[in-house]
């Protein structure tokens, strides 16, 4: 039921809006079929990013892919979090760690999802930046990958979505956008900082390509 709903949404309705607005082209999207479980690591400029990535996920996997979203932004009210989870299949996490309260620990929430076999879409920049400019990656995802070194991640570069609908804008303007997926990668580095730095460079390489 949930699968059918998400597929109608992301294979039917969303592309219908996304196509004129972004003319989005996917490069190397085959990689999404190569691994059963993965974490998509992407740069983040716009709400369009999640729509574009979810539309690229193969039909049978879509329920198992969870975009990780900021609970302090999308989950401020019950109604808002309900809508977000319903339409984007999101996994809401609080961005400010309150490690004492276990149910609100972002690491636990994400690791639980990984244990269930779910894939994640993570924007390690933490928030939407300026169009086509990458901010530094936060370390969080590095800690998680060190604990789950067998799970592959896919570095992904998304271009121009920040021009279509930047932060603070209400009316979207059409631009040609591009989503470039990289090869499957596994956790490299001794500590979280190194893992994340490697990731950052992999995404940057896709930008140059």
């Amino acid at each position: 039921m949930r699968q059918l709903f998400l597929n109608i949404l992301y294979k039917g309705i969303v592309p219908f809006i996304l196509k004129p607005l972004t003319g989005v082209k996917y490069k190397h999207a085959e990689v999404l079929t190569e691994a059963k479980q993965f974490i998509i690591i992407a740069n983040h400029n716009s709400h369009i990013d999640t729509l574009a990535l979810m539309s690229a996920i193969p039909k049978h996997k879509i329920v198992e892919v969870k975009p990780v979203a900021a609970g302090d932004y999308f989950g401020t009210t019950k109604w808002k979090s309900f809508i977000t989870v319903l339409f984007t299949n999101a996994l809401l996490i609080p961005r400010c760690c309150s490690l004492r309260n276990k149910s609100k620990d972002p690491f636990r929430i994400m690791m639980k999802a990984l244990k269930r076999g779910q894939s994640l879409i993570v924007y390690p920049e933490g928030s939407r930046g300026k169009a086509n400019e990458m901010q530094e990656f936060k370390n969080g995802i590095g800690h998680i990958l060190l604990k789950y070194p067998h799970i592959a991640y896919i570095p992904t570069y998304i271009e121009n979505t920040g021009k279509v609908l930047p932060k603070d804008a209400i009316v979207p303007i059409p631009f040609n956008c591009k989503v470039v997926f990289g090869e499957l990668q596994y956790c490299k580095g001794k500590n979280a900082k190194e893992v994340v730095t490697n990731m950052y460079h992999e995404v940057c390489q896709l930008k140059a390509a």
Partner: peptide, 8 residues
């Protein structure tokens, strides 16, 4: 499409 391409 041409306009979108140019503005991009």
């Amino acid at each position: 499409v041409a306009l979108r391409e140019l503005l991009t």
